[in-house]
Computed example of a mutant assay.
Amino acid sequence: MLRSDDLQVFVLTAELGSLSAAARQLELSPAVASAALKRLEVQLGCRLLVRSTRSLRLTDDGEAYLPHARSALQSLIEGQQLLAGGKASISGTLQLSAPSDFGRNVLLPWLDEFQLQHPRLSLRLLLADRNADLFRQPVDVALRYGLPEDSSLVALSVAATNRRVLCASPGYLGVHGSPRSLAELADHNCLRFMLAGRVHERWCFSDGRRQLEQAVSGDRISDDADVVRRWALTGQGVVYKSWLDIAQDVQMGRLVVLLPELLGEPAPLNLICAHRAHLGERVRLLREHLVERCQVLMQLAPFSS
């Protein structure tokens, strides 16, 4: 029979990259923690970690087993909560990855509200525009625009009808004027985003009958979507952003939507996890919380679908 405390030692060691650090956090002696890890490996019949005097890394078996160990521990916690009086009283640590711009400027206050509703919950938030490796990184779920390329991942819709929109600040438009067609974007400074080394410089739209594409250029490129948004706010150029990222800026008059008769690229927002076993009560409640708040912003969108 596997022991939950042995699983705790393994999971925390993998996350911290150190058996001694895991032992300190669990208030165990290094010898007891090492014995727990060895006991687990014997019961599973495989090596989970390769240890030396200077380093520690997961074996292939350890990487494959880690998400299952996390899921098992979470299931035990939720069972205890159910017996204690209801699943709504969630606790523990929820590890979430999110895009930089959406995370900093939209998500943070929503997470503050979520923790006020669930004060026993701790959050570990990782902000990055690159896709989190849900099999290797200590992340339970990731908020991402678009569907995952890996079909083995599980995607839960948060804002299915979200799209990109073209916009610029009133200051920029006062100096350079507003483009009256996609072709006129060639005369404007377009602020571009780069992901995985690829610059997003062909902006796609639809007029309801056909797909349209416009090559753009400009004097600024960043791999941080929040930086691109900040450039737009300070009047540096035209930007093509997810509506959820800039909805509040449009509401406050800091940005103006351009060519609203055109539909921008779909940018559905999803919660993504590696296994259905990770879809516990914490993730379900978080998703409900995010869906409600995204719906408010989507009602203000300049597009109908």
Rank of each mutant, 00 (worst) to 15 (best):
R220T: 00
A247F: 01
R180A: 14
N270L: 00
V239H: 03
V165T: 10
F114G: 01
M1E: 01
N270C: 10
H275Y: 01
L173Y: 04
L290S: 08
E184P: 02
D207T: 08
L111K: 08
M194Q: 15
L143Y: 09
R192E: 08
L116Q: 15
D219S: 13
N189W: 01
L262Y: 13
L285H: 11
T53V: 10
M194E: 15
A64E: 04
Q115C: 14
E265V: 00
V42G: 02
K87N: 10
S304A: 15
C46R: 12
R210N: 10
V283T: 15
T93N: 08
G62A: 04
G62W: 01
G235K: 03
S75L: 09
R284L: 14
S152K: 13
S152P: 04
G86S: 13
S242H: 06
G86K: 14
T93I: 10
V158W: 02
W243C: 08
R287D: 09
A196F: 10
S75K: 12
L125G: 10
S29F: 00
R230M: 11
V228A: 03
D219P: 00
L255C: 02
E41K: 12
L76W: 11
V139C: 13
A160Y: 03
P30E: 12
L76A: 12
Q80A: 06
L19P: 02
R230E: 13
L185S: 08
G17V: 02
A267T: 07
L126T: 15
R51V: 08
R136G: 01
S52Q: 06
V141N: 08
M194Y: 04
D224P: 10
L258P: 01
S29M: 07
G174V: 03
L182R: 05
D219H: 09
P170M: 12
R254N: 10
V154F: 08
L143F: 05
V239S: 14
P179F: 03
Q214V: 15
G208Y: 05
M194S: 15
D249L: 05
V291G: 03
F193Y: 15
L258A: 09
G86A: 10
D140L: 03
A274W: 00
L44H: 04
T234F: 07
P170N: 08
L66T: 05
G197I: 05
V227A: 11
Y172C: 14
V291M: 12
A142T: 11
Q43D: 12
S206R: 14
A14E: 03
M194A: 15
V257G: 06
L212Q: 11
R70I: 07
T53C: 00
L212E: 05
S4G: 02
E41A: 09
L244Y: 03
T93E: 14
L153M: 13
Q81A: 10
I90F: 03
M252I: 00
S52V: 05
